[in-house]
């Protein structure tokens, strides 16, 4: 009985410790588990897979460091795939920190042996247009001309000096676009403006909190593919590894983090269950006492 009482009144620091361990320990493990790939992630892969080499793909990075654990693994995996497939990549951000996160994804991709930095020329094979303030109005204006919103790129080059951008006026010249989103402005705005008004083909990576808002757009076909939260990231890594693995190592933080997150989740559930058992055991005993 004392055991159950002690359990109910457990110092919450023990819970903290368990959560910390549940998150930290799996990071040391080298796991490789095969998740079932959901329809929406498969859709994202299929859309990318269909693109011809040299197709132009627009990536909008609409998140900041706090959301990076969920979104960065997706961005990393997609960036690797696109570079390997020799797609032409145009990067932009509706969040100030977005383009910095994009550069991190690029640098990570270039660490792969099979993706040699020297094979890719900035301005020809990929471009980072940087951040632009104005939320959905940026997308709106890009609908008539990208140039209006991005007179200069992230490093200060003029738009017309970038060979890749010379052939691109607006969304009509883009073959596919992907948006990594942690809130507003994000996927909802891209769907409402870029997809609905300018008929862009859009795939999206979302945080777990955002994803439920985007599912309806996936069901209606306005978004062709969707990866949600850490599970989405892990699935994405899995699907790339399955169909395009070998020389490029796709399984990375998404898979690793997924394990951490699942175990931490299990810890939370375990405590809830234990707490309720303890509560009932004690409750019954107290009732017995009261009746005496």
């Amino acid at each position: 009985m004392n055991f159950w009482k002690a359990l109910l009144a457990i110092d919450r620091r023990w819970i903290f410790l368990f959560v910390f361990l549940a998150l930290a320990v799996p990071m040391f493990l080298n796991v490789d588990f095969d998740l079932s790939i959901s329809r929406e992630v498969q859709g994202l892969y299929d859309a990318l897979d269909k693109l011809q080499p040299n197709s132009k793909i627009l990536m909008s990075f609409d998140y900041d460091p706090p959301s990076a654990p969920e979104l960065q693994p997706m961005a990393d995996a997609i960036m690797k795939y696109c570079l390997k497939k020799k797609l032409r990549i145009i990067i932009m951000g509706l969040w100030p920190q977005g383009p910095i996160q994009a550069n991190m994804a690029l640098n990570r991709a270039f660490l792969e042996e099979d993706i040699n930095r020297d094979d890719y020329v900035y301005g020809v094979h990929y471009v980072n247009l940087g951040y632009q303030a104005g939320n959905e109005f940026v997308i709106q204006r890009m609908g008539s001309a990208f140039y209006e919103m991005f007179k200069r790129d992230y490093t200060g080059n003029r738009y017309e000096e970038l060979p890749l951008m010379r052939g691109i006026k607006n969304f009509n010249d883009i073959d596919f676009s992907i948006n990594f989103s942690a809130g507003y402005p994000g996927t909802v705005e891209w769907v409402q403006i870029a997809v609905d008004r300018f008929h862009v083909r859009l795939g999206a990576g979302n945080t777990a909190v955002q994803a439920p808002q985007v599912y309806p757009y996936y069901n209606s076909g306005q978004v062709v593919g969707l990866a949600g939260g850490m599970r989405g990231a892990a699935e994405l890594e899995g699907v790339f590894a399955r169909f395009d693995g070998g020389t490029v190592d796709y399984k990375d933080k998404g898979t690793k983090y997924m394990l951490s997150q699942t175990i931490a989740h299990a810890v939370v559930m375990f405590f809830i269950v234990v707490g309720n058992i303890a509560y009932f055991v004690i409750g019954r005993k107290d009732k017995l006492k009261a009746s005496k």
């Binding site: 008539s144 001309a145 140039y147 052939g167 006026k169 009509n172 010249d173």
Partner: peptide, 12 residues
């Protein structure tokens, strides 16, 4: 394009 600025509304 410089001669006819309105052409920027169109694609290449």
């Amino acid at each position: 394009m410089e001669q006819y600025p309105e052409l920027t509304e169109l694609d290449i």
